[in-house]
Design a protein around this nucleic acid. Structure first.
Length: 101
DNA sequence: CTCTTGACGAAAC
DNA sequence: TGTTTCGCCAAGA
């Protein structure tokens, strides 16, 4: 399944437990590329049928959903379904729900 | 091989 | 405080 450098990213995202979230940067760091946060987003967008990666647990450093399109509503719904709460500003408390805690 | 795009991020304006 | 720019990395045309 060597789908390129995304494999490592997918592996990390899959390791994120339900009810927790990680930022693109965190995934990038764990993947060994702290400057490749954008690439993580690329990997998420590249997700297609067949990949059971919990992409919805990946948010930006602001604890906010970056998806400009309706995908944001879906991601938020999935996160709330896992018990994650959103701030009035639509932000998630990374200190509380972050994988790192 | 070159140029553009993108679900990022921090800094500059 | 909101918007814009630059840097970084990988993929697609």
């Amino acid at each position: 399944m060597t789908e390129g450098h995304f494999q490592e990213i997918y592996r990390i995202v899959e390791a994120v437990p339900a009810g927790k979230v990680v930022t693109y940067t965190t995934v990038a760091v764990l993947a060994g590329r702290p400057k490749a946060a954008r690439t993580v987003g690329w990997a998420m967008r590249a997700l297609r049928r067949g990949t059971h990666v919990p992409w919805h647990r990946v948010i930006n450093a602001q604890g906010r959903i970056s998806l400009p399109s309706p995908g944001a509503e879906l991601q938020r719904a999935l996160l709330e379904n896992e018990g994650i709460e959103f701030n009035a500003t639509g932000c998630v408390d990374l200190q509380r729900y972050g994988w790192q805690g």
